[in-house]
Design a protein around this nucleic acid. Sequence first.
DNA 1: CAATTTCTTTGATTTGCGTCAATTCTGCGT
DNA 2: ACGCAGAATTGACGCAAATCAAAGAAATTG
Lengths: 247, 247
Amino acid sequence: MIQSCCKPDQTNSNFFQEIVCNECSLDPLCQVIEYAEPGSGVPDGILARRRPVQRGEMLFVMNQPFQAIYAVKSGSFKAVTYDQTGAERVVGFFLSGDLIGVEGMANQTYSYGVRALEVGSVCCLEVDRLAHTGRSTEVLQGALITMLGQEVAMNHLVTSSLIRQNAEQRLGAFILSLVRRSAVRGLSQRNLGLSMSRSDMASYLGLARETVSRVLSRFQNNELIRLRKHSIEVLDLDGLERVSSSD
Amino acid sequence: MIQSCCKPDQTNSNFFQEIVCNECSLDPLCQVIEYAEPGSGVPDGILARRRPVQRGEMLFVMNQPFQAIYAVKSGSFKAVTYDQTGAERVVGFFLSGDLIGVEGMANQTYSYGVRALEVGSVCCLEVDRLAHTGRSTEVLQGALITMLGQEVAMNHLVTSSLIRQNAEQRLGAFILSLVRRSAVRGLSQRNLGLSMSRSDMASYLGLARETVSRVLSRFQNNELIRLRKHSIEVLDLDGLERVSSSD
DNA sequence: CAATTTCTTTGATTTGCGTCAATTCTGCGT
DNA sequence: ACGCAGAATTGACGCAAATCAAAGAAATTG
Protein backbone atom coordinates (compact mmCIF):
# COMPACT_ATOMS: atom_id res chain seq x y z
CA MET A 1 0.00 0.00 0.00
CA ILE A 2 2.58 2.54 1.12
CA GLN A 3 5.72 2.60 -0.93
CA SER A 4 9.09 2.79 0.71
CA CYS A 5 10.91 6.08 0.81
CA CYS A 6 13.05 7.13 -2.12
CA LYS A 7 14.74 10.29 -3.32
CA PRO A 8 12.51 12.24 -5.68
CA ASP A 9 15.08 12.48 -8.49
CA GLN A 10 15.54 8.72 -8.48
CA THR A 11 11.99 8.19 -9.67
CA ASN A 12 11.42 8.56 -13.38
CA SER A 13 8.52 10.96 -13.63
CA ASN A 14 6.06 9.67 -16.18
CA PHE A 15 3.16 11.52 -14.59
CA PHE A 16 1.34 14.42 -16.18
CA GLN A 17 1.91 17.86 -14.63
CA GLU A 18 3.52 16.48 -11.51
CA ILE A 19 4.67 19.11 -9.13
CA VAL A 20 8.36 19.20 -8.23
CA CYS A 21 9.40 18.87 -4.61
CA ASN A 22 10.61 22.41 -4.08
CA GLU A 23 7.20 23.78 -5.16
CA CYS A 24 5.43 21.51 -2.69
CA SER A 25 3.94 22.53 0.64
CA LEU A 26 5.27 19.39 2.23
CA ASP A 27 8.82 20.26 1.25
CA PRO A 28 9.71 22.17 4.41
CA LEU A 29 8.76 19.09 6.36
CA CYS A 30 10.53 16.73 3.98
CA GLN A 31 13.65 18.83 4.22
CA VAL A 32 13.56 18.71 7.97
CA ILE A 33 13.27 14.97 7.85
CA GLU A 34 15.86 14.40 5.19
CA TYR A 35 18.42 16.97 6.13
CA ALA A 36 18.17 17.31 9.90
CA GLU A 37 20.33 14.23 10.24
CA PRO A 38 21.92 13.93 6.82
CA GLY A 39 22.80 10.47 5.65
CA SER A 40 20.89 8.79 8.41
CA GLY A 41 17.87 8.31 6.18
CA VAL A 42 14.29 8.05 7.28
CA PRO A 43 12.90 4.74 8.50
CA ASP A 44 11.17 2.85 5.75
CA GLY A 45 7.51 3.60 5.25
CA ILE A 46 7.33 6.81 7.25
CA LEU A 47 7.74 9.01 4.22
CA ALA A 48 6.19 7.57 1.06
CA ARG A 49 6.79 9.52 -2.11
CA ARG A 50 4.46 9.41 -5.10
CA ARG A 51 1.92 6.92 -3.93
CA PRO A 52 -0.61 6.69 -6.80
CA VAL A 53 -4.32 7.23 -6.18
CA GLN A 54 -7.34 6.28 -8.27
CA ARG A 55 -10.24 8.54 -9.15
CA GLY A 56 -12.85 8.31 -6.40
CA GLU A 57 -10.42 6.81 -3.90
CA MET A 58 -10.62 8.11 -0.33
CA LEU A 59 -7.28 9.13 1.19
CA PHE A 60 -9.01 8.87 4.54
CA VAL A 61 -12.56 9.12 5.83
CA MET A 62 -14.04 11.58 8.28
CA ASN A 63 -13.45 10.90 11.99
CA GLN A 64 -10.88 8.25 11.19
CA PRO A 65 -7.88 8.28 13.58
CA PHE A 66 -5.09 10.49 12.32
CA GLN A 67 -2.34 8.61 10.53
CA ALA A 68 -0.49 10.82 8.13
CA ILE A 69 -0.39 14.13 6.34
CA TYR A 70 -0.36 14.12 2.55
CA ALA A 71 1.02 16.38 -0.14
CA VAL A 72 -0.58 16.39 -3.58
CA LYS A 73 2.00 15.57 -6.25
CA SER A 74 -0.52 15.43 -9.09
CA GLY A 75 -4.27 15.27 -9.47
CA SER A 76 -6.82 16.95 -7.23
CA PHE A 77 -8.95 16.12 -4.22
CA LYS A 78 -12.02 17.32 -2.38
CA ALA A 79 -12.61 17.49 1.37
CA VAL A 80 -16.10 16.42 2.40
CA THR A 81 -18.23 16.35 5.51
CA TYR A 82 -21.83 15.27 5.83
CA ASP A 83 -24.96 17.03 7.03
CA GLN A 84 -27.56 15.34 9.26
CA THR A 85 -29.32 13.85 6.23
CA GLY A 86 -26.03 12.24 5.20
CA ALA A 87 -25.65 14.44 2.13
CA GLU A 88 -22.10 15.28 1.18
CA ARG A 89 -20.83 18.83 1.74
CA VAL A 90 -17.67 19.90 0.01
CA VAL A 91 -15.56 21.98 2.40
CA GLY A 92 -12.40 22.34 0.33
CA PHE A 93 -10.34 21.39 -2.67
CA PHE A 94 -6.69 20.31 -2.77
CA LEU A 95 -4.53 20.84 -5.84
CA SER A 96 -0.92 20.05 -6.75
CA GLY A 97 1.42 21.08 -3.98
CA ASP A 98 -1.27 21.42 -1.33
CA LEU A 99 -0.99 19.76 2.06
CA ILE A 100 -3.82 17.55 3.30
CA GLY A 101 -4.70 16.59 6.83
CA VAL A 102 -2.35 18.83 8.80
CA GLU A 103 -4.99 19.86 11.27
CA GLY A 104 -5.98 16.22 11.79
CA MET A 105 -2.76 15.77 13.68
CA ALA A 106 -3.91 18.17 16.36
CA ASN A 107 -7.00 16.24 17.44
CA GLN A 108 -5.59 12.90 16.31
CA THR A 109 -8.62 12.56 14.07
CA TYR A 110 -9.57 13.87 10.64
CA SER A 111 -12.40 16.41 10.68
CA TYR A 112 -13.31 15.62 7.07
CA GLY A 113 -12.88 12.90 4.47
CA VAL A 114 -10.79 13.38 1.34
CA ARG A 115 -11.66 11.90 -2.05
CA ALA A 116 -9.59 11.96 -5.24
CA LEU A 117 -11.31 13.79 -8.08
CA GLU A 118 -9.06 12.17 -10.71
CA VAL A 119 -6.06 9.87 -10.90
CA GLY A 120 -3.05 11.37 -9.21
CA SER A 121 -0.32 10.79 -6.69
CA VAL A 122 0.53 11.93 -3.19
CA CYS A 123 3.43 11.96 -0.80
CA CYS A 124 2.49 10.66 2.57
CA LEU A 125 4.22 11.39 5.87
CA GLU A 126 3.38 9.43 9.01
CA VAL A 127 4.24 12.14 11.48
CA ASP A 128 3.47 10.25 14.65
CA ARG A 129 5.68 7.31 13.74
CA LEU A 130 8.41 9.81 12.98
CA ALA A 131 8.15 11.22 16.49
CA HIS A 132 8.54 7.73 17.90
CA THR A 133 11.90 7.29 16.22
CA GLY A 134 13.36 9.66 18.79
CA ARG A 135 14.47 12.18 16.19
CA SER A 136 14.15 15.83 17.13
CA THR A 137 10.75 17.17 16.18
CA GLU A 138 11.28 20.76 17.25
CA VAL A 139 11.84 22.14 13.74
CA LEU A 140 9.07 19.94 12.41
CA GLN A 141 6.70 21.37 15.01
CA GLY A 142 7.71 24.89 14.10
CA ALA A 143 6.89 24.23 10.45
CA LEU A 144 3.53 22.78 11.44
CA ILE A 145 2.64 25.76 13.59
CA THR A 146 3.39 28.07 10.69
CA MET A 147 1.26 26.02 8.31
CA LEU A 148 -1.66 25.77 10.69
CA GLY A 149 -1.50 29.47 11.42
CA GLN A 150 -1.62 30.29 7.74
CA GLU A 151 -4.53 27.93 7.31
CA VAL A 152 -6.46 29.65 10.08
CA ALA A 153 -5.73 33.11 8.71
CA MET A 154 -6.76 32.06 5.21
CA ASN A 155 -9.94 30.41 6.46
CA HIS A 156 -10.99 33.62 8.15
CA LEU A 157 -10.62 35.48 4.89
CA VAL A 158 -12.43 32.85 2.84
CA THR A 159 -15.32 32.58 5.28
CA SER A 160 -15.87 36.26 5.84
CA SER A 161 -15.96 36.96 2.12
CA LEU A 162 -17.92 33.89 0.97
CA ILE A 163 -20.67 34.61 3.43
CA ARG A 164 -21.48 38.11 2.17
CA GLN A 165 -20.75 37.74 -1.54
CA ASN A 166 -23.31 37.08 -4.23
CA ALA A 167 -23.12 34.23 -6.72
CA GLU A 168 -20.99 36.07 -9.31
CA GLN A 169 -18.55 37.25 -6.69
CA ARG A 170 -18.23 33.79 -5.17
CA LEU A 171 -17.56 32.10 -8.47
CA GLY A 172 -15.26 34.86 -9.68
CA ALA A 173 -13.26 34.69 -6.49
CA PHE A 174 -13.20 30.91 -6.72
CA ILE A 175 -11.74 30.98 -10.23
CA LEU A 176 -9.23 33.62 -9.20
CA SER A 177 -8.16 31.52 -6.24
CA LEU A 178 -7.51 28.64 -8.64
CA VAL A 179 -5.46 30.98 -10.84
CA ARG A 180 -3.40 32.16 -7.88
CA ARG A 181 -2.78 28.68 -6.60
CA SER A 182 -1.67 27.64 -10.07
CA ALA A 183 0.62 30.66 -10.22
CA VAL A 184 2.27 29.86 -6.89
CA ARG A 185 2.97 26.32 -8.09
CA GLY A 186 4.30 27.48 -11.44
CA LEU A 187 1.45 25.93 -13.42
CA SER A 188 -0.51 27.52 -16.26
CA GLN A 189 -2.65 30.46 -15.15
CA ARG A 190 -4.62 30.53 -18.38
CA ASN A 191 -5.86 26.96 -18.58
CA LEU A 192 -7.28 25.71 -15.32
CA GLY A 193 -8.12 22.07 -14.78
CA LEU A 194 -11.64 21.88 -13.36
CA SER A 195 -11.73 18.32 -12.15
CA MET A 196 -14.63 18.85 -9.76
CA SER A 197 -18.27 18.72 -10.85
CA ARG A 198 -20.58 21.72 -10.89
CA SER A 199 -22.30 20.16 -7.88
CA ASP A 200 -19.01 20.07 -6.01
CA MET A 201 -18.39 23.72 -6.78
CA ALA A 202 -21.96 24.60 -5.79
CA SER A 203 -21.66 22.69 -2.54
CA TYR A 204 -18.35 24.33 -1.71
CA LEU A 205 -19.62 27.83 -2.54
CA GLY A 206 -22.99 27.38 -0.89
CA LEU A 207 -24.94 27.80 -4.15
CA ALA A 208 -27.37 25.71 -6.15
CA ARG A 209 -25.98 23.64 -9.05
CA GLU A 210 -28.15 25.61 -11.44
CA THR A 211 -26.78 28.92 -10.23
CA VAL A 212 -23.20 27.78 -10.81
CA SER A 213 -24.13 26.74 -14.32
CA ARG A 214 -25.87 30.01 -15.04
CA VAL A 215 -23.10 32.21 -13.70
CA LEU A 216 -20.39 30.31 -15.58
CA SER A 217 -22.42 30.67 -18.77
CA ARG A 218 -22.76 34.39 -18.06
CA PHE A 219 -19.01 34.65 -17.54
CA GLN A 220 -18.52 32.98 -20.91
CA ASN A 221 -20.99 35.29 -22.62
CA ASN A 222 -19.13 38.25 -21.15
CA GLU A 223 -15.85 36.85 -22.56
CA LEU A 224 -14.34 36.45 -19.09
CA ILE A 225 -13.72 32.73 -19.51
CA ARG A 226 -14.16 29.98 -22.07
CA LEU A 227 -15.76 26.77 -20.83
CA ARG A 228 -14.14 23.50 -21.85
CA LYS A 229 -15.10 19.93 -21.03
CA HIS A 230 -13.12 19.69 -17.78
CA SER A 231 -11.23 22.89 -17.76
CA ILE A 232 -11.73 26.59 -18.25
CA GLU A 233 -9.63 29.08 -20.14
CA VAL A 234 -9.23 32.41 -18.38
CA LEU A 235 -9.68 35.17 -20.96
CA ASP A 236 -10.00 38.32 -18.85
CA LEU A 237 -8.27 38.31 -15.48
CA ASP A 238 -9.06 41.96 -14.79
CA GLY A 239 -12.71 41.38 -15.63
CA LEU A 240 -12.82 38.54 -13.12
CA GLU A 241 -11.18 40.73 -10.51
CA ARG A 242 -13.85 43.31 -11.18
CA VAL A 243 -16.84 41.02 -10.70
CA SER A 244 -15.21 39.38 -7.66
CA SER A 245 -14.60 42.48 -5.59
CA SER A 246 -17.61 43.59 -3.63
CA ASP A 247 -18.14 47.27 -2.94
CA MET B 1 0.59 48.55 31.39
CA ILE B 2 1.40 44.89 31.73
CA GLN B 3 1.19 43.53 35.23
CA SER B 4 3.87 41.27 36.57
CA CYS B 5 3.19 37.58 36.88
CA CYS B 6 1.41 36.30 39.96
CA LYS B 7 -0.32 33.13 41.03
CA PRO B 8 -4.02 33.29 40.18
CA ASP B 9 -5.20 32.51 43.71
CA GLN B 10 -3.15 35.34 45.11
CA THR B 11 -5.32 37.89 43.35
CA ASN B 12 -8.53 38.77 45.11
CA SER B 13 -11.21 38.31 42.49
CA ASN B 14 -13.56 41.27 42.61
CA PHE B 15 -14.49 40.88 38.97
CA PHE B 16 -17.87 39.82 37.74
CA GLN B 17 -18.12 36.30 36.31
CA GLU B 18 -14.38 35.89 36.00
CA ILE B 19 -13.31 32.54 34.68
CA VAL B 20 -11.06 30.39 36.82
CA CYS B 21 -7.72 29.25 35.45
CA ASN B 22 -8.52 25.60 35.07
CA GLU B 23 -11.49 26.45 32.81
CA CYS B 24 -9.31 28.64 30.61
CA SER B 25 -7.96 27.79 27.16
CA LEU B 26 -4.64 29.30 28.05
CA ASP B 27 -4.23 27.01 31.04
CA PRO B 28 -2.41 24.22 29.19
CA LEU B 29 0.15 26.80 28.16
CA CYS B 30 0.31 28.38 31.59
CA GLN B 31 0.82 25.00 33.13
CA VAL B 32 3.65 24.26 30.77
CA ILE B 33 5.27 27.52 31.66
CA GLU B 34 4.70 27.33 35.38
CA TYR B 35 5.27 23.68 35.99
CA ALA B 36 7.81 22.62 33.38
CA GLU B 37 10.55 23.99 35.61
CA PRO B 38 8.85 24.24 38.97
CA GLY B 39 10.04 26.93 41.28
CA SER B 40 12.09 28.66 38.67
CA GLY B 41 9.32 31.13 37.95
CA VAL B 42 8.65 32.89 34.70
CA PRO B 43 10.61 36.03 33.84
CA ASP B 44 8.69 39.13 34.75
CA GLY B 45 6.32 40.50 32.15
CA ILE B 46 6.20 37.45 29.90
CA LEU B 47 3.02 36.15 31.48
CA ALA B 48 0.70 38.89 32.67
CA ARG B 49 -2.37 37.77 34.56
CA ARG B 50 -5.60 39.75 34.70
CA ARG B 51 -4.64 42.81 32.76
CA PRO B 52 -7.80 44.96 32.73
CA VAL B 53 -9.27 46.25 29.47
CA GLN B 54 -11.70 49.08 28.81
CA ARG B 55 -14.78 48.88 26.61
CA GLY B 56 -13.76 49.73 23.04
CA GLU B 57 -10.06 49.14 23.69
CA MET B 58 -8.10 47.31 20.99
CA LEU B 59 -5.98 44.41 22.23
CA PHE B 60 -4.10 44.70 18.96
CA VAL B 61 -4.83 45.98 15.48
CA MET B 62 -4.86 44.11 12.18
CA ASN B 63 -1.49 43.47 10.52
CA GLN B 64 0.37 44.55 13.64
CA PRO B 65 3.47 42.42 14.36
CA PHE B 66 2.68 39.50 16.61
CA GLN B 67 3.50 40.08 20.25
CA ALA B 68 1.42 37.89 22.50
CA ILE B 69 -1.49 35.55 22.79
CA TYR B 70 -4.31 36.45 25.13
CA ALA B 71 -6.83 34.54 27.19
CA VAL B 72 -10.12 36.14 28.11
CA LYS B 73 -10.57 36.16 31.89
CA SER B 74 -13.75 38.22 31.85
CA GLY B 75 -15.64 40.36 29.35
CA SER B 76 -15.91 39.72 25.63
CA PHE B 77 -14.20 40.76 22.43
CA LYS B 78 -14.77 40.90 18.70
CA ALA B 79 -12.31 40.15 15.89
CA VAL B 80 -12.56 42.56 12.97
CA THR B 81 -11.15 42.93 9.50
CA TYR B 82 -11.97 45.56 6.91
CA ASP B 83 -13.35 45.34 3.38
CA GLN B 84 -12.01 47.47 0.52
CA THR B 85 -14.31 50.34 1.47
CA GLY B 86 -12.83 50.31 4.96
CA ALA B 87 -16.04 49.06 6.56
CA GLU B 88 -15.59 46.83 9.57
CA ARG B 89 -16.34 43.11 9.22
CA VAL B 90 -16.74 41.05 12.34
CA VAL B 91 -15.03 37.69 11.87
CA GLY B 92 -15.37 36.27 15.36
CA PHE B 93 -16.23 36.74 19.01
CA PHE B 94 -14.16 35.80 22.04
CA LEU B 95 -15.75 34.99 25.38
CA SER B 96 -14.46 34.06 28.83
CA GLY B 97 -11.83 31.36 28.56
CA ASP B 98 -11.20 31.80 24.85
CA LEU B 99 -7.73 32.22 23.43
CA ILE B 100 -6.97 35.20 21.19
CA GLY B 101 -4.23 35.58 18.62
CA VAL B 102 -2.83 32.05 18.53
CA GLU B 103 -2.65 31.94 14.78
CA GLY B 104 -0.90 35.32 14.70
CA MET B 105 2.17 33.57 16.03
CA ALA B 106 2.49 31.54 12.88
CA ASN B 107 2.88 34.45 10.47
CA GLN B 108 4.29 36.79 13.10
CA THR B 109 1.41 39.13 12.34
CA TYR B 110 -2.22 39.36 13.41
CA SER B 111 -4.69 38.70 10.61
CA TYR B 112 -7.42 40.69 12.38
CA GLY B 113 -7.83 43.32 15.05
CA VAL B 114 -9.50 42.62 18.40
CA ARG B 115 -11.70 45.10 20.25
CA ALA B 116 -13.21 44.78 23.72
CA LEU B 117 -17.01 44.80 23.72
CA GLU B 118 -17.16 45.64 27.41
CA VAL B 119 -14.87 46.07 30.37
CA GLY B 120 -12.99 42.91 31.16
CA SER B 121 -9.59 41.40 31.77
CA VAL B 122 -7.15 39.18 29.93
CA CYS B 123 -4.10 37.12 30.60
CA CYS B 124 -1.35 37.86 28.17
CA LEU B 125 1.53 35.58 27.20
CA GLU B 126 4.49 36.87 25.20
CA VAL B 127 5.37 33.59 23.58
CA ASP B 128 8.35 34.77 21.56
CA ARG B 129 10.10 36.28 24.55
CA LEU B 130 9.49 33.04 26.36
CA ALA B 131 11.29 31.13 23.61
CA HIS B 132 14.27 33.46 23.97
CA THR B 133 14.73 32.55 27.60
CA GLY B 134 16.12 29.24 26.44
CA ARG B 135 13.46 27.21 28.21
CA SER B 136 12.23 24.11 26.47
CA THR B 137 9.40 24.96 24.13
CA GLU B 138 8.65 21.47 22.89
CA VAL B 139 5.61 20.92 25.12
CA LEU B 140 4.47 24.47 24.49
CA GLN B 141 4.63 23.86 20.75
CA GLY B 142 2.64 20.68 21.14
CA ALA B 143 -0.10 22.54 22.98
CA LEU B 144 -0.15 25.20 20.28
CA ILE B 145 -0.44 22.64 17.50
CA THR B 146 -3.41 21.11 19.25
CA MET B 147 -5.11 24.48 19.66
CA LEU B 148 -4.49 25.56 16.10
CA GLY B 149 -5.74 22.23 14.83
CA GLN B 150 -8.94 22.55 16.80
CA GLU B 151 -9.37 26.07 15.50
CA VAL B 152 -9.02 24.87 11.90
CA ALA B 153 -11.45 22.01 12.43
CA MET B 154 -13.98 24.30 14.07
CA ASN B 155 -13.64 26.92 11.36
CA HIS B 156 -14.44 24.32 8.73
CA LEU B 157 -17.64 23.47 10.54
CA VAL B 158 -18.65 27.09 11.07
CA THR B 159 -17.93 28.09 7.49
CA SER B 160 -19.60 25.16 5.84
CA SER B 161 -22.76 25.65 7.84
CA LEU B 162 -22.93 29.46 7.80
CA ILE B 163 -22.64 29.55 4.05
CA ARG B 164 -25.63 27.36 3.29
CA GLN B 165 -27.92 28.22 6.16
CA ASN B 166 -30.74 30.74 6.07
CA ALA B 167 -31.15 33.59 8.53
CA GLU B 168 -33.07 31.59 11.16
CA GLN B 169 -30.61 28.75 11.04
CA ARG B 170 -27.64 31.07 11.30
CA LEU B 171 -29.00 32.91 14.31
CA GLY B 172 -30.25 29.74 15.96
CA ALA B 173 -26.87 28.12 15.54
CA PHE B 174 -25.17 31.27 16.78
CA ILE B 175 -27.21 31.29 19.99
CA LEU B 176 -26.61 27.59 20.47
CA SER B 177 -22.88 28.09 20.04
CA LEU B 178 -23.00 30.72 22.78
CA VAL B 179 -24.88 28.26 24.99
CA ARG B 180 -22.32 25.54 24.35
CA ARG B 181 -19.39 27.83 25.00
CA SER B 182 -20.99 28.91 28.24
CA ALA B 183 -21.55 25.29 29.19
CA VAL B 184 -17.93 24.35 28.58
CA ARG B 185 -16.79 27.20 30.81
CA GLY B 186 -19.27 26.34 33.51
CA LEU B 187 -21.31 29.54 33.07
CA SER B 188 -25.08 29.88 32.90
CA GLN B 189 -26.63 28.26 29.85
CA ARG B 190 -29.96 29.97 30.34
CA ASN B 191 -28.94 33.60 30.56
CA LEU B 192 -26.51 34.59 27.86
CA GLY B 193 -24.71 37.90 27.91
CA LEU B 194 -25.10 39.53 24.51
CA SER B 195 -22.48 42.22 24.67
CA MET B 196 -22.23 42.71 20.93
CA SER B 197 -24.61 44.93 18.96
CA ARG B 198 -27.12 43.61 16.42
CA SER B 199 -24.86 45.08 13.77
CA ASP B 200 -21.93 43.03 15.05
CA MET B 201 -24.02 39.88 14.97
CA ALA B 202 -25.30 40.76 11.50
CA SER B 203 -21.80 41.39 10.23
CA TYR B 204 -20.50 38.15 11.70
CA LEU B 205 -23.40 36.11 10.33
CA GLY B 206 -23.44 37.81 6.93
CA LEU B 207 -26.94 39.20 7.39
CA ALA B 208 -28.53 42.65 7.43
CA ARG B 209 -29.07 44.34 10.80
CA GLU B 210 -32.79 44.37 10.14
CA THR B 211 -32.87 40.65 9.47
CA VAL B 212 -31.17 39.90 12.79
CA SER B 213 -33.74 42.04 14.55
CA ARG B 214 -36.63 40.39 12.75
CA VAL B 215 -35.43 36.84 13.39
CA LEU B 216 -34.75 37.49 17.08
CA SER B 217 -38.24 38.95 17.41
CA ARG B 218 -39.65 35.89 15.67
CA PHE B 219 -37.72 33.63 18.07
CA GLN B 220 -39.23 35.56 20.97
CA ASN B 221 -42.75 35.32 19.53
CA ASN B 222 -42.23 31.57 19.17
CA GLU B 223 -41.16 31.39 22.83
CA LEU B 224 -37.69 30.16 21.97
CA ILE B 225 -35.94 33.03 23.73
CA ARG B 226 -36.72 36.13 25.74
CA LEU B 227 -34.95 39.31 24.68
CA ARG B 228 -33.39 41.44 27.40
CA LYS B 229 -31.43 44.68 27.19
CA HIS B 230 -28.01 43.13 26.73
CA SER B 231 -28.72 39.51 27.22
CA ILE B 232 -31.11 36.81 26.13
CA GLU B 233 -32.81 34.14 28.13
CA VAL B 234 -32.94 30.75 26.43
CA LEU B 235 -36.41 29.29 26.90
CA ASP B 236 -36.49 26.36 24.49
CA LEU B 237 -33.19 24.72 23.71
CA ASP B 238 -34.80 21.93 21.70
CA GLY B 239 -36.74 24.44 19.66
CA LEU B 240 -33.54 26.27 18.85
CA GLU B 241 -31.91 23.02 17.83
CA ARG B 242 -34.85 22.38 15.56
CA VAL B 243 -34.71 25.68 13.70
CA SER B 244 -30.91 25.50 13.50
CA SER B 245 -30.61 22.15 11.82
CA SER B 246 -31.02 22.27 8.07
CA ASP B 247 -32.72 19.38 6.31
C1' DC C 1 -23.00 0.24 -29.64
C1' DA C 2 -27.20 0.92 -27.44
C1' DA C 3 -29.00 1.54 -22.78
C1' DT C 4 -28.94 3.61 -18.50
C1' DT C 5 -27.40 6.83 -15.46
C1' DT C 6 -25.36 11.03 -14.14
C1' DC C 7 -24.17 15.70 -15.13
C1' DT C 8 -25.17 20.12 -17.22
C1' DT C 9 -27.76 23.65 -19.14
C1' DT C 10 -31.72 26.60 -19.71
C1' DG C 11 -36.46 28.28 -18.60
C1' DA C 12 -40.46 29.44 -15.40
C1' DT C 13 -41.91 30.39 -10.83
C1' DT C 14 -41.45 31.38 -5.97
C1' DT C 15 -39.40 33.24 -1.90
C1' DG C 16 -36.13 34.89 1.52
C1' DC C 17 -33.64 38.57 2.54
C1' DG C 18 -31.53 43.08 1.44
C1' DT C 19 -32.69 47.82 0.84
C1' DC C 20 -35.20 51.90 1.87
C1' DA C 21 -37.92 54.33 5.14
C1' DA C 22 -40.23 55.58 9.35
C1' DT C 23 -40.72 55.04 14.27
C1' DT C 24 -39.40 53.80 18.82
C1' DC C 25 -36.02 52.66 22.22
C1' DT C 26 -31.53 53.22 24.86
C1' DG C 27 -27.77 55.30 26.62
C1' DC C 28 -25.01 59.46 27.34
C1' DG C 29 -23.66 64.08 28.37
C1' DT C 30 -25.00 68.58 29.98
C1' DA D 1 -34.63 65.79 33.66
C1' DC D 2 -33.86 67.06 28.99
C1' DG D 3 -32.27 66.55 24.31
C1' DC D 4 -29.47 64.33 21.20
C1' DA D 5 -27.23 60.36 18.68
C1' DG D 6 -26.87 55.83 17.85
C1' DA D 7 -29.25 51.32 18.16
C1' DA D 8 -33.16 48.56 17.47
C1' DT D 9 -37.61 47.50 15.66
C1' DT D 10 -41.15 47.14 12.18
C1' DG D 11 -43.22 47.72 7.54
C1' DA D 12 -43.20 47.97 2.29
C1' DC D 13 -41.01 46.67 -1.82
C1' DG D 14 -37.82 44.58 -5.28
C1' DC D 15 -34.40 41.49 -6.67
C1' DA D 16 -31.14 37.63 -6.60
C1' DA D 17 -31.04 33.07 -6.12
C1' DA D 18 -33.54 28.71 -4.68
C1' DT D 19 -36.77 25.58 -6.36
C1' DC D 20 -39.33 23.13 -9.79
C1' DA D 21 -39.18 21.25 -14.33
C1' DA D 22 -37.53 19.48 -18.57
C1' DA D 23 -34.44 18.61 -22.16
C1' DG D 24 -29.78 17.84 -23.87
C1' DA D 25 -24.85 16.19 -23.19
C1' DA D 26 -21.55 13.22 -21.29
C1' DA D 27 -20.06 9.33 -18.88
C1' DT D 28 -20.68 4.46 -17.45
C1' DT D 29 -22.42 -0.10 -18.13
C1' DG D 30 -23.36 -4.51 -20.13
